[in-house]
Design a protein around this nucleic acid. Sequence first.
DNA 1: AGATTAGCGGAGGTGGTCCTCCGGTTCAAT
DNA 2: ATTGAACCGGAGGACCACCTCCGCTAATCT
Lengths: 192, 192
Amino acid sequence: MPEQIVVSEFLAARRPRRTDAARNFDALLAAAREAFAEHGADASLEDIARRAGVGIGTLYRNFPTRRHLFEAVYANEVDDLGRVAAEVSGEPPWEALAAWLRRFVDYAMTKRAIREAMEGEESDVFLACRQSMYDAGTPLLLRAQAAGEVRTDMSIDDLLRLVSGITSVAFPDQGQRDRVLGIALDGVRTRS
Amino acid sequence: MPEQIVVSEFLAARRPRRTDAARNFDALLAAAREAFAEHGADASLEDIARRAGVGIGTLYRNFPTRRHLFEAVYANEVDDLGRVAAEVSGEPPWEALAAWLRRFVDYAMTKRAIREAMEGEESDVFLACRQSMYDAGTPLLLRAQAAGEVRTDMSIDDLLRLVSGITSVAFPDQGQRDRVLGIALDGVRTRS
DNA sequence: AGATTAGCGGAGGTGGTCCTCCGGTTCAAT
DNA sequence: ATTGAACCGGAGGACCACCTCCGCTAATCT
């Protein structure tokens, strides 16, 4: 099992074993994901508990601090990203990279949160997550560069910051977002 | 006098005539600019008053609601942008556009705020500001397109959203931000 | 200089969020 | 079915931001 699963293992370890407790844990995670997507990283914790149909005490038992909760949600998303990278690795170099990046954009929750996570103070979990994202994307980038499809004067860090910037801006419709992302990616490709 | 000044006229009309009041007004605007840049659009109003060395009552007298204050700061910035557009209009097409966009990025305050202003509900002032920005940028874009320097399948709206996306992401250092911006702008240029 | 009045500023009421604590409830193991 | 432990949920105190209101201050005018 590759690196990418490490994060969710960390999550699974914290998931309670009793059935009702586990259900609440999942509900909280889902509600938090939703709330963070909507209001950014400082959504109201009491609102999250409400959405999850759970008392505020339960939230605090599972996630002693806002950061714990935030990290848990984030880790979940990042894990998926690793899985997608494996899935697309069969495609031609450029298509694989583009598909992965498009998926990167689609993470609605992470839309706002990823940005706030990249700035700000680092925690172990955030560092691990970022590393995991980089590990997932780097092979795709390197392959596209080796194939002469992507300019060689940029790093995975540059690439993800570029894309997450576009992700964090509001667009009236999805079509425009795709168009603008396409333009940015044209800058990433080598000139023919 | 072109369109761009309209916004600051609106501002000047609201500026008190008494000297101490005018000073407070300016201090509040400066403090707000700073606070919004730092904490985003929901910075604490009491903190802003404190920074300005002014009572909270004074803040509310000048700006009855947070939106009023926000709009005032925003209008100020946008106005400058119009002025810069006029300044660079002598440069060659591509250089003029690029210089203007780079200036666009530099507006630290607007960094976070512009993004939040572009989503969310529209107000008259925001619409006017956006329009003013578009009015300033459109001639530069059209000229660069006419000169065959910029792809013709994108609008000023696409362009500003692209750039403001990059603006809203945190970068470890200014150099990386410039590099990434350069890459995105390569996507904007026509292929030679 | 004195009167006038615009403007100041902060005390305090309101409401929302954070987080703790513990009496009651529900699960699971026997 | 019973029992013990794990878990639930929300009442409540601390805190902070918002915004109003009004007695006081100081700028402007004559």
